[in-house]
Design a binder for these strands. Structure first.
Lengths: 150, 150
DNA sequence: TATTGTTATACTCTATAACTATA
DNA sequence: TATAGTTATAGAGTATAACAATA
C-alpha cells in the first residue's frame, strides 16, 4: 500500500478532513490556472459578486462571501488600485461605498471565468454531469448549515 | 431573496468555491467542537496518523497529510510539549525521529474522535448514509487528482 | 443605538530557501 | 548525492477590538 492511499487511519471516515484536502487540491490548481492574472480565489469571489450586484457595498459583499468587514478593506483596495472595481460614495447612505466592476474588471473576470471552467473540468474529469450536480447539492446543503455571517 | 441564498452569481456553478465554503463551515464547527481540548484540525490529523502508524517519522506524516517538512517541525514540537506524542531517535536511521502516541495522547485522541463524530453528525444531519458515502467518494476522487506531495 | 468603513493587531496555515547531520 | 530534520522568513486567510462618520 502506498503512502498516499490510506495511511490516514481514523481520519478515513471524517468528511471534514476530506473536505479540507479536496478544497486544498482545488485551491492549488486554481492558483496555477490563474497564473499571470494576479487573481486569487477571494478576489475573483468579490469581483463576481460585485459584477452580479452592481452598486453593492463592502459589508454586503463580505456577508455574501463570509469575509469580515475588517478584512474587506484591503481586498477592495487591491481591486480598486488594479482598476478592476470602482468605489463611489453611495448617495443614499453616505457611510457606504457603492461598488461597480470597471470595464477592465469585467474583461478580466470573463477571462478568469473561462480559465476556471477549464480548471474545474480538469479536476472533475472523472465526474458525470449527474455526479457533479450531486456534489454541488451536497456542498450547498453543508454551506447552509454554517453559522450566519456576523 | 435573502443575501445568503444566491447572490454569488457566476460562482454558483463553481465547485471549487463551494468546496472552500463548505470546508470553512466544517472548520468553524470543528473549532467550536474542540474547545477546551487545545486541538486543531492539523494536530488531530497528525495524532491520528501517528496513532495508526507507530514509529513513523515526521516527513512521512507530512507526506500523508500534505504538510511540508518545514511546517511539521513546530507542529510536532507542540504535540511533544503537550506530552501527546513521543519523539525518539530512530535507531535504524539516526537522521529521523520515530514518533509514537503517548498514553495521554491516545486518551485525548479518542476523546476528540468522539467529539468529532458528534460534530460531523450535526453538520451532516440532512444526509442519508448513502449520500454521505457518495460525498466521501467524490471527495476522495478529487483528492487523488492533486499533485503528489513534495 | 446601530451600521459602514477603517486601523491595528495577532494567530494559523502555507511556501521557499538555506543549513546540519546523517545515509 | 539524497534525505531527515531544522531555522528563518514571508504571504495569505481569518479573527477581535476599538474608532470615526453617518444613519
Amino acid at each position: 500500500m502506498s503512502e498516499r492511499s490510506n495511511m490516514v487511519g481514523d481520519l478515513a471516515p471524517v468528511v471534514g478532513y476530506h473536505l479540507r484536502r479536496a478544497s486544498g487540491v482545488f485551491a492549488a490548481d486554481f492558483a496555477a490556472a490563474m497564473e499571470g492574472t494576479g487573481m486569487r480565489q477571494v478576489l475573483i469571489g468579490i469581483l463576481a459578486v460585485v459584477s452580479g450586484s452592481p452598486g453593492i457595498n463592502q459589508g454586503a459583499v463580505g456577508r455574501v462571501l463570509g469575509i469580515k468587514r475588517a478584512n474587506m478593506v484591503s481586498l477592495i483596495n487591491e481591486l480598486v488600485d488594479a482598476d478592476l472595481i470602482e468605489r463611489v460614495v453611495d448617495t443614499a447612505d453616505r457611510r457606504a461605498f457603492a461598488l461597480t466592476v470597471t470595464p477592465s474588471g469585467a474583461t478580466l473576470l470573463a477571462a478568469c471565468l473561462r480559465k476556471i471552467e477549464t480548471h474545474e473540468d480538469r479536476l472533475l474529469a472523472g465526474f458525470t454531469a449527474a455526479e457533479k450536480n450531486m456534489l454541488l447539492d451536497f456542498l450547498g446543503r453543508i454551506e447552509r448549515r454554517g453559522a450566519p455571517p456576523a
